[in-house]
Design a protein around this nucleic acid. Structure first.
Lengths: 112, 112
DNA sequence: GCTACGCATGGCCTACAAAGAAAAAGAAAT
DNA sequence: ATTTCTTTTTCTTTGTAGGCCATGCGTAGC
C-alpha cells in the first residue's frame, strides 16, 4: 500500500471501548452516567450507548477529578457546577476587596 | 478595672474546644489525627490532647479540603503532599479577608 | 460466541459515630 | 474545706451507614 492508512476517527464508541480507554469496568461508566449530568451519550434504537469524542472527553473530566485528583463524587459535582472552586474562591476574594475599598472611600469622605 | 482586659490567647485548646470551632465531633478530630501527619497535637502526661493555635490551623486546612472542597481523605493527602504551601496561602488570604471585613464592620458601627 | 442493555442486589472500604471506661469539673450538703 | 453525687470531658476500641462501584440475571442484536 502506497500510503499509510490514516487513523480514522470513529463517530461513535461503545461503552466497552470507552471503559477500556480508562481501564475501568463498563458498569462504572454507566454508574457515572447516572450520577453526572455531564455524561449523556446518545443511544441507538436498541438502547446501546454511542459515545462521541466529546462524550469521551467528558468522561475524562470525571475520571480526572475522581480518580486522579481525589474528589468525592459530590465534590466533583460541586467542582463542575461552580466552574471550579478556585475560581469561586478568587471571586470571593475580589468581591471582598471591592467591598472593603468601597467602605474605605466612604470613611474617607466622612473624615473631610 | 482601669484597663480593659486584653484578650488572652490560650496556649492550649482541648479537643472539645477544637471540635466546637469546626462544629464537628471530637471523634472526628481524633480520626483525622490518625490519618494526617499534619495533625499532631501534643499530649499531656495523662494523654489529653493539647492543641496550639498552629495545630488548629492545620485542622482548618484539613477541614477546608475535606469538608469544603470535597476531597477524599486520600485526595487531601495528595494535595498536602504536593501543594501544601499554596493551599495554606489561599486559606490565609481568605481568612485574612474575613478578619478585615469583620474589623471594618466594627469600625463602621462605631462611627454611627 | 460476543457484546450490549436495564435492573437488582451484593459487597468492600471510607469516613466517621457510638460505646464504654475513666478522669475532671461542678454543685450541694455537711 | 471536704465529702458525696452528678455532669461533663476525655480517652481508646469497636461498630456502622453509606459511598462507590461490581456482579449476576434475564434479554436481545450481531
Amino acid at each position: 500500500m502506497a500510503y499509510k492508512e490514516k487513523e480514522i476517527e470513529k463517530l461513535y464508541y461503545s461503552i466497552g471501548e470507552v471503559a477500556e480507554i480508562f481501564n475501568v469496568a463498563p458498569s462504572l461508566i454507566r454508574f457515572w452516567e447516572s450520577e453526572f449530568e455531564l455524561i449523556q451519550p446518545k443511544k441507538n434504537r436498541k438502547g446501546n450507548r454511542q459515545f462521541t469524542v466529546e462524550d469521551i472527553n467528558n468522561v475524562r473530566t470525571i475520571y480526572h477529578l475522581v480518580k486522579e485528583k481525589g474528589f468525592t463524587l459530590q465534590g466533583a459535582k460541586e467542582m463542575l457546577k461552580n466552574d471550579t472552586q478556585s475560581v469561586k474562591d478568587k471571586m470571593e476574594m475580589i468581591d471582598s476587596l471591592k467591598r472593603i475599598r468601597q467602605f474605605l472611600s466612604e470613611v474617607r469622605d466622612k473624615l473631610h
